[in-house]
């Protein structure tokens, strides 16, 4: 049985590492995300939620970037094991 561990960045729990596989966004937002290092293959760590639950901060290419739910829901990837 193949266990599917595909989740969106939004679903990630604090401390999760997610390897990006697809970004279902278009236009400027997609290009901006690419510039910041949200490229397929990159590994993103879920850092923390803001006090009101949204946005969520992620660690990507050695920097911390906050994304809103609308966008982080559309970035998908695979859960990576810590070890």
């Amino acid at each position: 049985m193949v266990k599917s561990n595909k989740i969106s960045l939004f679903q990630g729990k604090k401390g999760n590492l997610i390897k990006i596989s697809s970004i279902s966004l278009e236009g400027v937002m997609r290009r901006r995300l690419l510039d910041l290092g949200f490229v397929p293959g990159a590994i993103v760590e879920v850092i923390k939620k803001s006090p009101l639950g949204d946005p969520i901060a992620f660690r990507v290419s050695q920097t911390t970037i906050a994304l809103r739910k609308e966008e982080s829901m559309k970035i998908e990837g695979e859960l990576v094991n810590h070890d």
């Binding site: 510039d35 910041l36 290092g37 990507v60 290419s61 050695q62 920097t63």
Partner: peptide
């Protein structure tokens, strides 16, 4: 220097 990867881009 502390986030060279993105900066090099």
């Amino acid at each position: 220097a502390t986030s060279l990867e993105r900066n090099l881009n």
